[in-house]
Amino acid sequence: MQPTTTQPLLEVSDLSMRFGGILALNSASLNVLPGSITAIIGPNGAGKTTLFNCITGFYRATSGAIRFNSGNSSVDLIQVLGGPFKATDLTDPRAFSTRLYYKMLGGSHRVALAGVARTFQNIRLFDEMTAIENLLVAQHTGLDRNVVGGFLRTGSYLKSEHTAVDRAFYWLDKMGLGEDANRLAGELPYGHQRRLEIARAMCTQPKMICLDEPAAGLNPNETKALSEMIQMLRREHDVAVLLIEHDMGMVMDISDHIVVLDHGEVIAAGTPQHVENDPAVLAAYLGADYETGVAL
């Protein structure tokens, strides 16, 4: 790991995730720096998606810690899920009350509120809503949600809706979906759906966006456009990107930092040049094809 002066945005330390007999993550650690593009690579079943699900709060890690430091606040992404009570809570009323609070109101949505957005390996859009509505739902937590105000169409409500619609159109244009605003998300072509999912994640105004195989199923042209869009996100919107991707060309092109997972363990981490030449990576990744020289 290179020495850093800035504090990492995301700190994952010794994270383990066990499903019955399978140890999907085995003491994995990684850091994501603010405004960086970090790629997670590894063979199928290495535990990449599991790592994402732990970070974004869809799985509760068996052990380990995840901290998210944005601005001057630091959030424990495991605590906000609301864990079971512990015996020590009985002696410490403050620990007890925070645990009770997160037990009642915690959950994976808290992770998103802390500033982590994500997309899914298998696309999850609101199929029977229009593209623009998908993006409006994403802005839900920031809108004027007063039911009475909304019914009476008060000024503050209209203003909040107006801004939301405007931001939604902005993101549609950014992702090249301007024409699709009033089409049902489920009817869009596959490539557009992938981009709409990214636009939707960006509408939550995250500090970090986690993309799970965004280029899967795209043709080379679309992949190239996607690479540019991801770099644009970082450049213009100051988000850190955490990326799972099998397309090595794309990964090597755009990432600052690469983490290699195999069987739930981090076997290498570093710059693309460093990872490219790491023998352990080649062995894990290519297995028997080691000698054939597939471009890594």
């Binding site: 974004t56 709060g57 869809f58 109101l105 959950g107 994976s108 949505h109 808290r110 998103a112 509120l113 957005a117 994500r118 899914f120 999850r124 859009l125 609101f126 199929d127 029977e128 809503m129 509505e133 998908n134 739902v137 994403a138 839900h140 937590t141 939707r200 994640a201 939550t204």
Partner: peptide, 16 residues
Amino acid sequence: EALRENEIACRSLGIN
């Protein structure tokens, strides 16, 4: 409606 369409996606967007 979003919840009806996809609960997991809703949670990923910060909706309780």
